[in-house]
Design a protein around this nucleic acid. Structure first.
Length: 371
RNA sequence: GGACGGGUGGGUGAGUGGCUAAAACCAGCAGACUGUAAAUCUGCCGCUCCUUGCGGGCUACGGAGGUUCGAAUCCUCCCCCGUCCA
């Protein structure tokens, strides 16, 4: 079996230490997946990412479908070969674009009609089409197309989206059984349900009957408070099988991630470290640093004295500020490198804390420092 | 010496009688960013006072006078810059 998920240890909080095996290597969980929407993590080479210890990257079905096209990528040997990434890849289905491109789309039970943000052309994504594209891309983990809604949303509205997502999950599974290869790829179903705990539980339970090899929780961190995100995560996770990996989509800040891990989450992804880096917001052991702030202009210290990354070992805050304020390319590169290191290093420490059963202590220390 | 053109807030630069403490952009200062339409977006950006309000006072469009209820905008003189002619 090329795919395998093992829970190696659990922490009193409920956190799980695990290992997910894929044809492109194993992933230590809880894992953070950097986002490389357009087959690139902006500002980092694949060699950089390997050096950082990234075991799995996220990329995007919808964006790659529009450009350069999944057929072209298949011709060039699939996404791994195309982008020269030897480790695992998870592709998001385009479900998030249903949310973020809401002004440019129309949803029916059949699928989603998009007006391309690139050239205005009309595009259509159905659950089957999203899988067809992901099969062509060859990602290790495919996501079913889902309907992600904003928060807050009314119960009927959330229910409609959740039920549609469930129906789409069934169609996705069936399509993959017919056209996919489970030795090569796995498909995760996605729980929806807005900010309604009962609906989350109900939707998760129904999804589990479809027997996916892994489950994602979607539609969170889209406007609701962190405590509600946790409550919903808890509600959904409680209905998921313990032996399958759980992926909380699109989160979060470092101090939030430990909370999700404590709720039994195994995988997460977020644009925060990469996007914030480009915007001059850097994550450190003492909290966030806006490197453009005047107070760093003459600061000879490393960004984070407790950080072992290549950037902190070599450059000063004053230099990083200079690069940012002059708009130099190197600013994006160094900032992104540091932020990803910080996230991945935090995950390493989280895994270690779970191994020793003291995540609770680790969490309160981390949250105290970062608040 | 003469003829034109021009001098606006830290910079570039709109504005040619009231809606102008003065567009826009840049610089500066601060904030946001959560399955990436994002190397983006937002706010502040003359001084000052308080009862912090689409509040009051003061200063401001090269300088000094003047016209007008009202001037960055019109008039006079002066200073400076650019181009051209001697």
């Amino acid at each position: 079996m090329p795919f395998r998920f093992e829970v190696l240890a659990t922490d009193p909080t409920g956190a799980r230490l695990g290992r997910l095996t894929t044809p492109h290597g194993t992933i230590d969980t809880p894992a953070f997946m950097p986002v490389g929407t357009a087959a690139t993590v902006k500002g980092q080479t694949q060699a950089d990412l390997e050096d950082l210890g990234v075991q799995i990257l996220l990329s995007n079905t919808y964006h790659l479908f529009l450009r350069p096209g999944h057929v072209l990528i298949r011709e060039l040997g699939g996404l791994h070969q195309f982008m020269s990434w030897p480790r695992a890849i998870l592709t998001d289905s385009g479900g998030y674009q249903v949310f973020s491109l809401s002004a440019l789309r129309k949803i029916t039970d059949e699928g989603v009609k998009f007006r391309s943000h690139l050239d205005g052309s009309e595009q259509f994504l159905s659950p089957e089409k999203a899988l067809e594209i992901q099969i062509a891309l060859g990602s290790d983990i495919c996501m079913v197309l889902d309907e992600c809604i904003e928060a807050p949303s009314t119960e009927p509205c959330a229910r409609q989206a959740a039920e549609r997502t469930l129906a789409w999950a069934r169609r996705s599974r069936d399509y993959f059984e017919q056209h996919g290869d489970s030795d090569r790829q796995m498909v995760f179903g996605i729980v929806q349900g807005g900010t309604h705990a009962d609906l989350r539980r109900e939707n998760a339970a129904a999804l589990v009957e479809l027997k996916f090899p892994g489950y994602a929780i979607g539609g969170l961190a889209v406007g609701e408070s962190h405590s509600v995100t946790c409550e919903m995560t808890q509600a959904a996770a409680s209905a998921l099988p313990v032996e399958k990996p759980r992926y909380l989509m699109g989160v979060g800040k470092p101090e939030q991630i430990v909370d999700y891990v404590a709720l039994g989450i195994d995988m997460m992804d977020c644009v925060l470290p990469t996007r914030s880096a480009r915007h001059g917001c850097l994550f450190t052991s003492q909290g966030r640093v806006l490197i453009r702030n005047a107070q760093y202009a003459r600061d000879p210290r490393p960004l984070d004295e407790n950080c072992g990354c290549a950037v902190c070992r070599r450059y000063s805050r004053a230099y990083l500020r200079h690069l940012y304020s002059t708009g130099e390319f190197l600013s994006v590169i160094l900032n992104t490198h540091h932020n990803l290191y910080f996230y991945l290093d935090t995950m390493r420490k989280i895994r270690e804390a779970i191994r020793f059963g003291n995540l609770k202590r680790f969490r309160s220390d981390l949250q105290e420092r970062l608040k």
